[in-house]
């Protein structure tokens, strides 16, 4: 690593075995033009303090492991660079609104349970044997759900959502975006099964369209649009549910 400069990184530390609450610790880290924030943390762990705990894996912004708060903003540390913060310093904290497991690692179980609850899989109209070949799906049909399928489950949007922070019962941006992804897929007919989740207070109705979720999404998914389009869908369903003929789709 061609080292050009040093930067100060302040890290929130919390150890469940010994600490009653988190506290900050500061490290000085050398960096080059291409050094990512993640590599800065790896430097600390390799050379300064092996006990610093954080998750990482792919280093290319697709596995969704390394989301953290960098100077108060949710971000993937593998694709943020130390040079962007120099000559200032960095304050790195675990993703906001999620319980801290240890240091920079948060507890993800709540999201995983919510993801499972939305039935995130194709519910087909009728079972089709593999031998019958693939479903036909035009590029236009695919485009109707595709952006929502690009969610990497990094939880940055949960760290961005104050409503989730205030009430973790809220299903949250990513789970609702994925719910919308399946409801919008031409191969799926599971919408009726998923609408009760949407219609609940903990579904779309806990959202006040802060909009920060879409702002911080590293993959250009727009969870806010998924949630708020479903408010319209849920509202229409609320008023017109008794008028629609019950049958095929129920």
């Amino acid at each position: 690593m061609a080292t050009h400069d040093e930067i100060e990184i302040e890290v929130l530390r919390y150890h469940p075995e010994t600490d009653s609450e988190p506290s900050y610790r500061t490290y000085r880290v050398p960096f080059a033009h291409e050094t990512s924030v993640l590599q800065g943390l790896q430097y600390i762990k390799d050379r300064l303090d092996g006990s610093l705990t954080f998750r990482w894996s792919c280093r290319m912004a697709i596995c969704g492991s390394c989301g953290m708060m960098i100077n108060g903003v949710p971000n993937l540390t593998c694709s943020a660079f130390l040079r962007e913060y120099h000559p200032g310093k960095l304050r790195i904290e675990p993703l906001a609104h999620l319980p801290i497991e240890r240091d920079l690692a948060v507890d993800q179980t709540d999201f995983l349970e919510k993801l499972a609850s939305i039935q995130p899989y194709i519910i087909p109209a009728e079972s089709k044997a593999v031998d019958e070949g693939p479903f036909t799906q035009t590029p236009a049909q695919r485009e109707r759900f595709y952006q929502y399928s690009e969610c990497i489950n990094c939880l940055l949007c949960y760290a961005a959502c104050p409503q989730y922070g205030l009430d973790s019962g809220f299903l949250g941006p990513a789970a609702l975006a994925l719910l919308h992804r399946y409801n919008s897929d031409s191969r799926d007919v599971g919408k009726a099964d998923r609408m009760p989740i949407v219609n609940a207070q903990e579904g779309v109705w806990a959202c006040t369209l802060v909009g920060y979720c879409s702002e911080v999404c590293p993959k250009g998914v727009d969870p806010a649009s998924a949630v708020n389009r479903n408010k319209v869908i849920s509202t229409l369903d609320y008023f017109f549910r008794f008028m629609a003929p019950r049958g095929a789709s129920e």
Binding site: Y121, V130, D131, G133, F135, T136, T138, D185
Partner: peptide, 22 residues
């Protein structure tokens, strides 16, 4: 191919031709 079709049935968003084929 069988497994690719299976993934398609499970929802994998394979890129498509204009006519909707894989």
């Amino acid at each position: 191919t069988r497994e690719m079709v299976q993934l398609e049935h499970w929802g994998c968003p394979w890129s498509r031709k204009d006519d909707g084929d894989i």
